[in-house]
Design a protein around this nucleic acid. Structure first.
Length: 987
RNA sequence: GGCCCUGUAGCCCAAUUGGCAGAGGCACGCGACUUAAAAUCGCGCCAGUGUGGGUUCGAGUCCCACCAGGGCCA
């Protein structure tokens, strides 16, 4: 498929400079001052001309397989209409420095860039302005590419990917089909082709249980996780073909399901849980979101919960990000407990309420049960007397948001169903209530309430006068601070007696761990057992008696994968008239988006408005496909924005491949054993993109399409660039550029404004464009400034005022190397003197260490220091110049290329070897030791570097002031730390 | 409410990971150059590390509590 990608368009630096070939390198320049504009445009032209940063794949001509690989990727941007502000390139500059540094240390470096171009803003802009999203997207990509190229970033632009490119989303669709055509084998804990499930079923390895679960046909316990032996199990061969098809759909990793979804009428689409804020609003646009059932595509990410959590152990990521992912996955260990209904027979599942609890050890204290208002059993359980009250309550609950319902401070509400269940441990009748503090979406939508040991249950029980039975003995301290008036808080026995007799008189529930009390039946006793032990004992008993089992519960839900949008990937799916689903044959991919005039989503204020996808208005010729005389309808939803970003790092490896999503050899080489060597982006993607992406990667791994279990071996989060923002007296943001400062007061147009502070961006009107800075100071200055602001992973404040600091550094560097009067190079073949040489080697070490630690601010500081040293001398010894310029080259590549060229090198500095320091040059002949007496600095002594501890100690004792402080006291201890200090402890 | 991160000079930040608190930049002051200013060059200025405890011969660094700012989850 022939198509022109926007990022293929030629460089337009907008400076009237037409890139010249290397042979046309200008020999004479009019002015000899630091002409960053000319230098930067010239070198950017040369790099582009020479393909300097093209990365070779195995098999390419000139590929050197002997070098180690280094694959470094930025989280690719959304091509927004306003272009880049200086906050965006923070990470890009950092990865560029790493890429350039790694090239110089002998690595094959792959450093690509692309665009995540599907999504709401382009579509919304298109709707508002009547322009096709393709046109705005292309325009924005062209602009951002121009901005990025102007920063001198060493991307291999030949590998640029755009998620909206049919040549790209062909493979997004292909991967979707991999998910559709796979199932998750819970025994092997991996995805397998669905055809293997069919084979297993045909071979009779599994039977089908009454509830559709697979039941191992063998007696062995290995397949236990698939479900217990069920009496109503049927053979695969007994099923009708459509039943077989439906059964398979139950196991696919991509499946259609009628599920309660987050419906946002204002956006006219559904949203994933991850796209809904805590306030129950849409992440984008802050519109109201409602729960409603809809038939949607889902991806079975929950099958991978365990591996997604466990495999975080094998990647080098910031701990807080790992923690956030673990929290999001939300693994909790506990037990599933079946409560028989008081008047049921407990023979079939309908007569049982199943709950999940993390505290099975408190089962003896379960004095009532609560169902979520949406729980399917509410209808059948409720007695006639209570029906009216329950129905009213359900209606009322539907209007409250989940957050509202879960707030612990809020007063609890609820209503009795009139029905009872039996606590399996003692056959006590426990009332079944309906209350909205229990969510249908988590666990089973039903809980056993243990009011003595759960605060929400405690509040509820107090409010409705339900029994509070303590079954865990709290700590002394806890009882002391929560005991009611009238009991002796200093008397442990009195406290305990009070608690056991009347836990409801205490002012809170005890949720901690402790010894069991009141927990005994004929077969099991938890009394005296500590919580973990008690849990095990209870789970053992439950399992033995068939009342439950130990399970692991996850917070993560399956991924809602349909959107009612135009500007997204179409699904490669056809619907037959009889409702069954047929995947589009892979040779027919991509299913291209149809050309459409009207692609507006059907937005509405009415939460009950029926969802209508833009593609339902597509031309008939697109919507319907006839195969073998059957008229199929295409799937009319599109994929969410996250789809394209799930795998782009794989496409970079082999961007032009029309045969495969990525060539095997390219994938094996660049992904290596641990995936990406460095992945840099904002922490805001901690739980969305990074989780989805890992999930897809694992599926591809299971199916043998990629060779690593994890995609991103190392992750690094850059901080945000923040900036001052200003509001007028109405609280409206004012353009930061219009604000003036006088005597610490801020005004705009004569009106006083107040200063705030926040992440740079359009909404706070405090964005600074990199174009402005490049024009005024050059991009080398911008690059240095952004790195010099502070540690990369921390947020820092943009201050245009401070840019001059690094700019002065570059000017000073220029003057150190080039005579501004004559343009003459000031590098000479003289030897450097000893102290300068030492300084140089110290700098090499410091810069190298800092580069490895990604502490670019420190690396730059070290180079400024060395440069300041050179200010004092008229000419630069070549041995200094030859080392110093390469040290700076990754950070400020343009000026370094220019000086390098003038020093007589014809090759780009980017291919030069990174300097190495001579350890001998770091060793001084003598060392100065601070001498402490009792930890306080009392003197300094200078001794030969190779002096032994005794000699150092002797020298220290010889110091006059030290001796004075030791006078008349006994020396208790002498600590001599080689190369550090001496501490004499006296007393 | 829980968890995580951060707190060093007027400001941004270093500190070899437990070893002399100061590398660098900004701002400021003085001087040189200049008719003058800018630029440039030179010199100088300033904190005991948010607060209170603890561990240690020794704490910016480790532990506990609190305070402030930021983030994530409720």
């Amino acid at each position: 498929m022939a198509h022109t990608r926007i990022c293929d368009l030629p460089l337009n630096v907008g400076l009237g400079f037409v890139p010249a070939g290397p042979s046309e390198y200008p020999r004479r320049i009019m002015s000899h001052t630091y002409d960053y504009t000319g230098i930067e445009a010239r070198w950017q032209g040369i790099w582009e001309q020479r393909d300097t940063f093209r990365a070779l794949n195995p098999g390419d001509e000139g590929f050197d397989g002997g070098k180690p690989k280094y694959y470094v990727v930025d989280m690719f941007p959304y091509p927004s209409g306003v272009g880049l502000h200086v906050g965006h390139p923070l990470g890009y500059i950092a990865t560029d420095i790493v890429a350039r540094y790694k090239r110089m240390t002998g690595h094959n470096v792959l450093h690509p860039m692309g665009y995540d171009a599907f999504g709401l803003p382009a579509e919304q802009f298109a709707v508002e302005h009547g322009v096709h999203p393709k046109i705005t997207t292309d325009k924005n990509i062209a602009n951002m590419t121009r901005q990025l190229k102007r920063l001198g970033l060493s991307y291999d632009w030949d590998r640029c990917v755009e998620t909206t490119d049919p040549g790209y989303y062909k493979w997004t669709q292909w991967i979707f089909l991999r998910l559709y055509k796979s199932w998750f084998d819970p025994v092997a804990q991996k995805a397998r082709p669905i055809s293997e499930l069919v084979q297993a079923l045909e071979a009779g390895d599994y039977d089908i249980g009454a509830d559709g679960s697979l039941v191992a046909d063998t007696a062995g316990g290995a397949l236990d996780t698939l479900g217990g032996v069920e009496p109503g199990a049927r053979k695969w061969t007994e099923l009708a073909p459509d039943q077989q098809a439906r059964l398979l759909d139950e196991y696919r990793l991509a499946y259609l399901a009628e599920v309660p979804v987050n419906w946002c009428p204002a956006l006219g689409t559904v949203l994933a849980n991850e796209e809904v804020t805590n306030e129950g609003k849409s992440d984008r646009g802050n519109h109201a979101v409602y729960k409603r059932p809809m038939k949607q595509w889902m991806l079975r990410i929950t099958a991978y919960c365990e591996r997604l959590a466990d495999d975080l152990g094998m990647v080098d990521w910031p701990e807080p990000i790992k923690l956030m992912q673990r929290n999001w996955i939300g693994r909790s260990e506990g037990a599933e407990v079946h409560f028989p209904l008081a008047f049921g027979s407990a023979e079939s599942s309908e007569d049982v309420i199943t709950v999940f609890t993390t505290r099975p050890d408190t089962l003896f204290g379960a004095t009532y049960m609560v169902l979520a208002p949406e729980h399917p059993l509410v209808e059948s359980l409720t007695t006639d007397e209570q029906r009216q009250a329950v129905n009213d309550y359900q209606k009322q609950a539907a209007t409250r948001s989940d957050i509202d319902r879960q707030a612990e401070t809020k007063q609890k509400t609820g209503v009795f169903t009139g029905a009872y269940a039996l606590n399996p441990v003692d056959n006590d009748k426990v009332p079944i209530w309906v209350a909205d503090y229990v969510m249908m979406g988590y666990g089973t939508g039903a809980i056993m309430a243990v009011p003595a040991h759960d605060q929400r249950d405690f509040d509820f029980a107090k409010q409705f006068g339900l029994e509070i039975k303590p079954v865990v003995l709290p700590t002394q301290d806890w009882m002391k601070s929560h005991a009611p008036e009238g009991c002796d808080k200093e008397d442990a026995h009195d406290l305990m007696a009070h608690y056991v007799a009347a836990a409801d008189t205490f002012d809170a529930a005890f949720g901690g761990m402790g010894a069991g009390i009141n927990s005994e039946n004929a077969e099991v006793s938890l009394n005296g057992k500590l919580t973990p032990e008690a849990k095990d004992a209870m789970i053992g008993w439950l399992k033995q008696r068939g009342f439950g089992k130990g399970t692991i519960q996850y917070r993560l839900r399956d991924w809602l994968f349909s959107r009612q949008r135009y500007w997204g990937e179409p699904f490669p799916i056809l619907h037959a008239p009889d409702g069954h689903i047929v995947p589009v044959p892979e040779e027919d991919l991509p299913v291209a988006l149809p050309e459409m005039e009207d692609f507006k989503p059907s937005a509405s204020d009415d939460p009950d408005a029926p969802p209508q996808t833009p593609l339902s208005r597509a031309p008939e010729s697109w919507k319907y496909v006839e195969v073998d005389g059957v008229k199929y309808t295409r799937e009319l939803n599109t994929m969410p924005q996250w789809a394209g970003s799930c795998w782009y790092y794989l496409r970079y490896l082999d961007a032009g491949n029309d045969e495969r999503f990525v060539g095997k050899e390219a994938e094996r080489y660049w992904m290596g054993d641990n995936g990406l060597d460095l992945y840099v982006g904002g922490a805001e993607h901690a739980v969305l993109h990074l989780l989805y992406s890992r999930f897809w990667h694992k599926v591809l791994f299971d199916l043998g399409h990629v060779g690593t279990a994890e995609p991103f071996g190392r992750l690094y989060n850059q901080g945000y660039i923040q900036a001052y923002a200003y509001t007028d007296k109405r609280g409206v943001y004012i353009d930061a550029e219009k604000v003036q400062e006088e005597d610490g007061k801020f005004t705009a147009g004569g009106e006083p404004v107040s200063r705030e502070f926040g992440k740079m961006g359009k909404s706070l009107k405090n964005a600074v464009s990199p174009d402005e800075v490049c024009e005024q100071y050059g991009c080398d200055t911008l690059r240095l400034y952004e790195m010099y602001l502070g540690p990369l992973d921390q947020s820092k404040v943009w201050s245009t005022r401070d840019i001059v600091g690094v700019h002065r550094f570059l000017q000073r560097l220029w003057r150190n190397f080039v005579d501004e009067e004559t343009g003459e190079l000031l590098v000479v073949s003289d030897k450097a003197d000893e102290s300068l040489k030492r300084k140089l080697h110290k700098t090499i070490k410091r810069v190298t260490d800092s580069m490895d630690a990604m502490a670019f601010n420190v690396a730059i500081a070290a180079l400024i220091e060395l440069n300041n040293e050179l200010v004092g001398i008229k000419t630069i010894p070549r041995e200094v110049a030859e080392n110093m310029i390469p040290l700076l080259a990754p950070s400020a590549p343009h000026i370094c290329e220019e000086i390098w060229k003038r020093m007589g090198h014809d090759d780009s500095i980017s291919t030069t070897d990174w300097p190495t320091h001579d350890p001998a040059m770091l060793i001084e002949d003598t060392a100065e030791y601070p001498v402490q007496v009792n930890g306080k600095l009392r003197g300094k002594v200078t001794v030969p570097t190779d002096a032994d501890d005794a000699a150092i100690e002797a020298a220290a004792r010889g110091d006059e002031n030290v001796a004075a402080h030791m006078d008349g006291k006994t020396v208790r201890k002498v600590i001599v730390i080689k190369g550090r200090l001496i501490n004499i402890v006296v007393g």
